[in-house]
Design a binder for these strands. Structure first.
Lengths: 195, 195, 195, 195
DNA sequence: TATGAATGAGGATTCATTCAT
DNA sequence: AATGAATGAATCCTCATTCAT
């Protein structure tokens, strides 16, 4: 007699186990056996629910991206004015759920892999474009288009850099990263008329 | 007597082939067969000259680091004054030799791997510390210690971020990255007394 | 549910195939491919059940030792008196199950290997000590301690020698080996008072 | 300008290195690289002087056999009477040159290999037959043919057994082995008329 | 739905052998 | 006579995937 409604539970278990393994052991050392053991299921089940290892990895990256998106749109919905929107984006990107050592390490692994796995590359592009578009829109309300574009470019790079920094330093410090990013924003806004 | 002095030649060939493969296909897809084919030699020769795949990969990362170091110290030796030193560091990091798509991609792969391979991690730490120390020293000549430290932190993160950005964007633009970094420096220096 | 309880079956198959291969082709020429083909399974299964080639070889030697032990203790349990115990030990060592050309050849290969593979060496030591202790105990009931010890030493060497002889002669003759060993025992007992 | 007369020197060096390696590391772990390093020459030279690894190993075993033969015939030439001849054979087999741990270990390795390498098998057969024929001849002068044959068989087995014992015990004791063998001879001779 | 037994392709590595010098 | 660079076949092992139950 088959247990009903197991699908969403199993999928979540497996995705969590995958992110954990990628974060802890790296992309190359993440095997289906390791994932299935961590999730407490048999290796065969992965193919039952995801079709294969690659699809599971894609789902895991998608899950990370979705979490990030939620952190950002949650803060954006409460933000009042363009400056607050910039803060919301920065804060969302360095939210605790995203800034745990393991999650950050997993991100780095997915980024590296995204260069060679088209599907992961697409996910990463979507994320990138969304960040850039959000930043440009907010900056656009504070200055002229060309300046806004370059400010967005700079801030996006800084956010990525702070994240990478955190991934490599093994001691991610969300608060300090936020502070640096905010200083950058202030710095950019100083030359403009609008506060 | 056999052909003598092949060792340095073979080592260079194999290291170049390794960087190329890591850049093009990723760390996980870089096999000894692929490397040896790219270098036009037999797979066995890798173990003859490097002892194993891991040692070759380490040598390749070391080679990338050394190239970067040369770009920076070459510019630093000609730099006059702290502001020029900062420029030298930024320019060195975005020098053409380091900013080619493949080299940047290889960097990203090595970074991701450095989290799990202790030897690579050590190399990466050395690089990180050198950059930070260079930046802090230069900023230190332009303002008080605490400010200099944070400025160095920020600029280091920005440099990494711009590089990561380049790695992911597939169209690295050294000039624009430089411009953003220089703007960041100017921005930081505005609040200080020394020009 | 998959086929259950295959583990003991597979383990026995693989151990038998290993002993056969070591006996027929020697230790150095015993490859996982050869073993797996002889057992009618794929090479990968060896690692599934034993973890690796070395562990399988160890299990095979352990199996040979256990067979020998059974032959001896089976006979010892029925033996009445010290002289009968000596006969039981000798007969057990030259029992048909142990004295087939292939088994004897495998023994020789394991012995040679035991000198350099610590795990095999340990197994071989245990066997050696057990034989010696059994012999010494039986001889001890028939004469003084010092004499018993030397008699045990001599008989143990003779048993090993007859076995080695058999291994090298390619035509092991258990009956004749037994006869020689029994003569040796009689010879040793002649000088003592107890019959 | 080629150095003349190097051949016998090189051959001896390489044979000694081979026996040493086989004794220390075992047959399977004896590689041409290891041998050539131990002999202080290049790997290629082995093929120059011996044609290949197998031929070198054969020459090494042949060298061990020849040494043993010399030990025995040297003693036999001085032996007076059949009983002295038996002692000469036993003593020759346990002579110090042959009873060093490494030499004994090498012997064991060659014996095991002789079962599968025809050339080594032939060498080993020659040795075996020579020993047996020597023993039978000596015993033949002390009793009837059938008894002599079985006594020779027994003593040959005992000699092999004591040797094997030594090889496995890692602490070869030539003197004690001799004592046991002599006791065996005395034991056999007790029933006969001639002392 | 879930298992885990089994496969077999592909990987790193070792090593006897060849050969130009 | 001697070197050591180079080869490539063979070995062990890992792992995604399949499938009968």
């Amino acid at each position: 007699m088959p247990k009903l409604g197991m699908e969403p539970i199993r999928r979540r278990q497996l995705i969590a186990a995958t992110i954990s393994s990628v974060g802890r052991y790296g992309y190359g050392e993440t095997t289906v056996l390791r994932i299935s053991k961590a999730a407490g299921v048999s290796p065969g089940i992965i193919h039952h629910y995801f079709g294969g290892k690659d699809e599971l990895l894609e789902a895991a990256m998608r899950s990370l991206l979705e979490q990030l998106r939620q952190e950002v749109i949650g803060r954006l919905s409460k933000a009042d004015g363009p400056r607050a929107r910039l803060s919301a984006i920065v804060d969302g990107n360095f939210a605790s759920s995203q800034f745990e050592p393991q999650a950050v390490a997993a991100w780095l692994a997915f980024w590296a892999e995204a260069r060679h796995a088209p599907k992961l590359g697409r996910l990463q592009q979507i994320n990138r474009r969304r960040l850039h578009s959000n930043l440009r829109q907010a900056f656009g309300l504070l200055g002229e288009a060309e300046w806004a574009d370059r400010a967005a470019e700079g801030l996006a790079a800084l956010i990525d850099g702070l994240w990478l920094h955190a991934a490599l330093a093994r001691a991610p410090d969300g608060a300090e990263a936020c502070a640096i990013a905010h200083r950058f924003i202030d710095c950019e806004l100083e030359g403009t008329d609008r506060p």
